[in-house]
Design a protein around this nucleic acid. Sequence first.
DNA 1: CGAATACAGAAAATCGATTTTTTACAAAAA
DNA 2: TTTTTGTAAAAAATCGATTTTCTGTATTCG
Lengths: 247, 247
Amino acid sequence: MPRPTPGFQIEAASEDKRDDAPDIRVDPLDSPLAAGSLFESLRRDLIDGHFVAGEKLVISVLKDRYRVGLSPLREALNRLAAYGLLEQTHQRGFRVPALMQDDLEEIAKMRLELECMALRRAMERGDTEWESRLLAAVHRLRRAEANQLPLHEWEVLHRAFHRTLISPCGSRWLLRFIDQLHDQFDRYRRQAPTNAKIRSRRDDQHYQLAALSIERDQSAAITLMEDHIRFSFEVALAAVNPAVTPD
Amino acid sequence: MPRPTPGFQIEAASEDKRDDAPDIRVDPLDSPLAAGSLFESLRRDLIDGHFVAGEKLVISVLKDRYRVGLSPLREALNRLAAYGLLEQTHQRGFRVPALMQDDLEEIAKMRLELECMALRRAMERGDTEWESRLLAAVHRLRRAEANQLPLHEWEVLHRAFHRTLISPCGSRWLLRFIDQLHDQFDRYRRQAPTNAKIRSRRDDQHYQLAALSIERDQSAAITLMEDHIRFSFEVALAAVNPAVTPD
DNA sequence: CGAATACAGAAAATCGATTTTTTACAAAAA
DNA sequence: TTTTTGTAAAAAATCGATTTTCTGTATTCG
């Protein structure tokens, strides 16, 4: 059964005046991209934890909730399954993957390998334009933290920062795999609690990552990237093992 | 427009007696897994090159060709797009990605990184059971080559060998990404010509790979894996640049 | 004569209904 | 009481029709 999160406040009630539902990103009824935008909506809701891990997704319920027809909905679910954010079993529908410590460890390990590889290449290939965009991205991210912007804004900027950092790595496949792993990782991280200490350390790491990368200090940047991912992993662990929130 | 390959000998003519069409792997009409098996059929036909690279896939044509309804077909296409074997543009359907040298280079580079990583881990973790399965796999593969089994049989055994080689690497994501890259790579390789010399060298490499991996000779095995992928890359290059078939 | 526009045909995307399969529950038998 | 079997409800999967969007062509206007 879906969790009663603020993301789903559309009830069967009033059919008009949807503009005041800030948590729903796209109104599929007005948009001609039902299947495509639905994929994005579902993707985000899955990562945000708006569904209980392990939960079975009942098509007819989703259909009502997102106000779309059967075909675009099933197409979006199929894409999500191919992407790894859903599991599909023949004749018994779609299921949200459970959260398991083994999985999280594996995902973190892969992130470590791939993101360090990407960062190394990015430092070799990045130009002034990249350096500029990176500085801009880290600045936006830190301001969002300092100014206590809503969590969602921060998440968007955080993802943008990491993407910018490795964007000149030269491999679309590498970027694609890392994106996929980030989505998987964030399912855990978003479930884990944070505190000021965690956020502050993370904030520093982001800034230092940008600085060292621009300076082309390869070994220091790579080491920091490893630290950053390991630290995020420690934090995310609390999603599967609530005892171990680090401070 | 689809190429007139033997895979598609079903014309609009006789509506009965489909059993004599050996190249169609599953008859979706008899199977209750239309969408799932259709994904596999399309995946294989895409890798086999039964579609022209860059070609636009017309839904209604595919519908007739594979004899399925619109919904399972579109679901399969969506999954293939998420998987990277098709490109989707909103409101203008699905397209087979073009073959480009840049892409091939990138794919080969990623294969090099990921498969070496996986092989290293597999050698650390593989047990006797793995060694046995690996010997069996390489034996089947070499016998298929020696006995001139049909190409398709060899392709299946070839894929099975590579999968077995790295199977104990301990990371589902790593295996998944490598599988995906193999599919991409094979789109090129299958288009490139081979000769006895190429096949013989490749055959040797497979045998040596198995032997060195079982002996746990890490550096030699990794070096050979690099050679193997580089060599396959050289061969596959002919798919985009017909002048350079190596001998 | 060239560019812009309107039209017609084709194709993609979506919808709602139908079919098939699974699941849950209850009744009967061991 | 427990297991088995039958039945009804629910859900998934598929189908064919409908709607929307695009594309190519021909016609009109500048």
